[in-house]
Design a protein around this nucleic acid. Structure first.
Lengths: 145, 145
DNA sequence: GCAATTTATTTGATATATCAAATAAACACA
DNA sequence: TGTGTTTATTTGATATATCAAATAAATTGC
């Protein structure tokens, strides 16, 4: 007879939580910009802070595979949110530039994403957030060593 | 100047953790059964405890969309791990039956999945696991209300 | 008993995940 | 300087995510 111990359920809970958060994010993002995805929005905001990232750095920042980043950026370019041009200093790389459409999108998206985060973490004290963070990092470490 | 407060980083950490855990799981599962995915393995174990689930129940248990479950089960059937037959009492539903190949797989998978969980949660005390669970549930609730 | 509605599943379309293999440019260095 | 190696990105193939729409069977109300 298997009992549902925390050991069995915590990892389910992580899945459940991230999916719930992504769903909330997707909903709120689509209300301001219907044709952009959660991942695309996040990438826009990251590039807004610093466009000098290589695709590999970008991938690592959002925990995505390099192949995924290639495809996500391609779609974003297709929709006119950014442009890719070959880096003169290293022709393997691309320089990413946020297009006007991307900049307008960012001004709408930034407050939404910020609100999503505060909504999700509502009611958690600062020390709870820190503890949650530490516990998650510990699990990540266990999984990657 | 934006600072990386826990508010900004905790949700990233959740994403990072679940991906690390899935990667570990995929690796260990593929060592005993190369042609099965993490999701398929989990579904096999759930069906092993109780085959009387409808697809909707199954989907809710693993936090997946009904469309995803349809496709995952179809692939599992194609590979011979289970069979679907129309339920006589409700012809919209299917009865899921684990095939012999599925049963053999389960006996190999069960210890691996169990080990994956203990590996991931290694070093977390019982009370830390519980607190982690509670905090995650709180966030989930914030996102779904 | 039948029309209208609800429920369970499937299908279509598009986005992302993941691994392996392919490209192509940069680099190391004999 | 040419050659082997490493690095950054892309492509291919397959699996899953997600929403909307389609099916088809069950149920409800009259």
């Amino acid at each position: 007879m298997k009992i549902n111990t925390p050991t069995n359920t915590v990892l389910y809970a992580i899945e459940e939580t991230i999916k719930a958060y992504r769903k909330l994010s997707a909903k709120n993002i689509s209300e301001v910009i219907p044709d952009i995805t959660v991942d695309q929005a996040l990438i826009l905001l990251i590039l807004d802070k610093n466009t000098d990232h290589t695709q590999m750095e970008l991938a690592d920042l959002v925990f995505k595979d390099y192949a995924s980043i290639t495809r996500i950026l391609k779609l974003m370019e297709k929709k006119g949110y950014l442009t890719k041009t070959i880096d003169a200093k290293d022709k393997r790389r691309s320089t990413l530039t946020i297009a006007d459409k991307g900049k307008k999108a960012i001004s709408l998206l930034a407050p939404v994403i910020s609100l999503n985060r505060t909504t999700a973490l509502n009611g958690l004290t600062e020390s709870e957030r820190i503890q949650l963070f530490e516990l998650l990092k510990k699990i990540t470490k266990n999984c990657t060593n």
